[in-house]
């Protein structure tokens, strides 16, 4: 019997988010596994450029290639909301994530502090397992 998993990765373009994505790409070893990269579009994003620097499908494809990951198993979703809410919604259809992957810190100047931690919030409220990837985590 073949099992497949959907891993949803929060991605804001930060180096920690890239670490989380690299971890997910290595974790999704089965050819049936899918990695869904989820970007939360906040209120400010509506004002300026559509996507922040480093948050583009081209950047994701580049990362996938570097990790030797079949880019056909990579999905890209932009959802309105804050990072925590958007990741928690990824558990429900249409993404139906089996596992959530987040970096330990984000783009915020002091994100990762007790109050602003997306990773803590997601871990506290998620109904599926959550992996928090430490800063500068090197995938072996």
């Amino acid at each position: 019997m073949t099992t497949s998993r959907t891993l949803a990765v929060g991605f804001d373009g930060s180096s920690d988010a890239e670490s989380a994505l690299r971890w997910a790409l290595h974790e999704a070893r089965s050819p049936h596994d899918v990695v869904v990269v989820v970007h939360a579009a906040g209120m400010l994003e509506h004002l300026g450029s559509p996507l922040p620097r480093n948050v583009t499908p081209a950047r994701l494809i580049e990362l996938a290639r570097r990790c030797d990951f079949d880019e056909r198993r990579l999905r890209w979703v932009v959802d309105d909301g804050d990072a925590c809410s958007v990741l928690l919604r990824a558990v429900a259809p249409p993404i139906s994530a089996d596992l959530l992957v987040v970096g330990s810190r984000g783009l915020g100047r002091r994100d990762g502090y007790l109050l602003g931690s997306t990773s803590l919030e997601v871990a506290q409220h998620a109904s599926v397992p959550v992996v928090v990837v430490p800063s500068n985590h090197a995938v072996s």
Binding site: M43, D82, L107, L114
Partner: peptide
């Protein structure tokens, strides 16, 4: 707990709470 954290965060100088 949120009120405590918010107060402490501000008195610590503040910063970004999320992307917005």
């Amino acid at each position: 707990s949120y009120l405590d954290e918010l107060g402490a965060y501000c008195y610590g100088g503040g910063g970004d709470l999320d992307q917005d």
